[in-house]
């Protein structure tokens, strides 16, 4: 397992054991979480058999990791256990976590923070279906980068939902930063354009553009996103430089469909998974990474401005599978 150890070393974050970990705190709130199930499972079985693998399958599916992802990874583990004659449930669990880790890591880079341009504003476009927490996440991201000394501008390009502009404006006031808004029902692309223009004129480091929640089946709204993207690109080269899809941790298998559809119109550069302080495991991110390669960048853990953590794969999988012994 030299390779796996190496990869883990490479991808896991430093200072793991500092400060009380909100992330683990969030996960530990769920009483019947993945890990405790897995552990109780390994206690019930002295050696593994088909039933054991069936129960592993159930644990993964109940975390929303999806049927095809689950069947594949379980089959991998099953094959390896047969080949290497491994029957100890604890060891099987290790293999499972390792397989998921390597599978995820192999899909490409894992870089959490927004990648800033050398010169001029960096534009971050935030998209997602309705009610996943886009606006709250934007506030958290703004807070994070303000604290890193960046000059941040918010752009309220959700001109559709009642109260959306007010919601983001409230956050801008709390954060004491500028916000660009348009009239209700006005063209979101023109608001976005005004936003990036203003960013250029005011030496802004990071522009975060909020968009209306839209179900990926709404063709005209998806085309609208494409337009927002294009007009920003005209004003600032390469904009948007980052596009985050916000995914609710409670999302089931439709999450993959969502990611696929948004990826087609906006070139997603990352995912922020929200509401991880609940009991949902957010396993859909594994399926999304598996099918589309889009990496998770941040995790939302509550409603306060600082309830945002960088995604740490190692921690996530261990939190899911092995912690809470």
């Amino acid at each position: 397992m030299g390779l796996i150890a190496f990869l883990k070393e490479k991808f896991s974050k430093k200072n793991k054991d500092t400060k009380v970990d909100k992330y683990q705190e969030g996960l530990s709130k769920s009483r019947k979480n993945f890990s405790s199930k897995l552990n109780s499972l390994s206690e019930r079985y002295k050696t593994v058999n088909q039933d054991y693998f069936d129960e592993l399958e159930q644990i993964l599916i109940e975390s929303d990791a999806g049927i095809s992802f689950t069947l594949n990874v379980i089959e991998d583990v099953l094959n390896q256990s047969k080949r290497d004659h491994i029957t100890d449930p604890k060891q099987i669990n290790e293999i499972l976590v390792d397989k998921m880790f390597v599978g995820y890591a192999e899909k490409g880079d894992i870089q959490n923070d927004v990648v800033f341009r050398e010169n001029g504003p960096t534009v971050l476009l935030v998209v997602g279906v309705n009610g996943v927490g886009k606006t709250t996440t934007i506030a958290k991201l703004a807070y994070r980068y303000i604290n890193q000394g960046k000059k941040v501008l918010l752009v309220a390009a959700d001109t559709f939902r009642a109260g959306a502009v007010e919601q983001l404006t409230t956050w801008a006031e709390r954060l004491k930063i500028d916000i660009v808004t348009g009239k209700p029902e006005s063209d979101p692309a023109s608001v976005a354009f005004d936003g990036v223009k203003k960013a250029k004129e005011n030496n802004i480091d990071l522009v975060i553009v909020d968009t209306a929640g839209r179900l990926q089946t709404k063709n005209n709204l998806m085309l609208e996103l494409g337009k927002i993207k294009r007009v920003m690109g005209k004003e600032i080269e390469g904009a948007p430089h980052e596009t985050f899809l916000i995914v609710d941790a409670t999302t089931g298998q439709n999450g993959v469909v969502q990611a696929k559809a948004f990826k087609e119109v906006t070139d997603l550069t990352g995912i922020v998974i929200t509401k991880m302080d609940g009991t949902s495991k957010g396993g859909i991110i594994l399926a999304i990474r598996d099918e589309l390669g889009v990496p998770v960048r941040f995790i939302g853990l509550g409603e306060k401005m600082d309830d945002l953590e960088e995604f740490d794969l190692d921690k996530y999988l261990y939190g899911l599978c092995v912690e809470n012994n």
């Binding site: 109940e62 009610g131 999302t251 089931g252 999450g255």
Partner: peptide, 12 residues
């Protein structure tokens, strides 16, 4: 209940 809700919806 969101139509896209996953496995945890029952617990909720």
């Amino acid at each position: 209940v969101d139509a896209a809700a996953g496995q945890d919806a029952v617990n909720v």
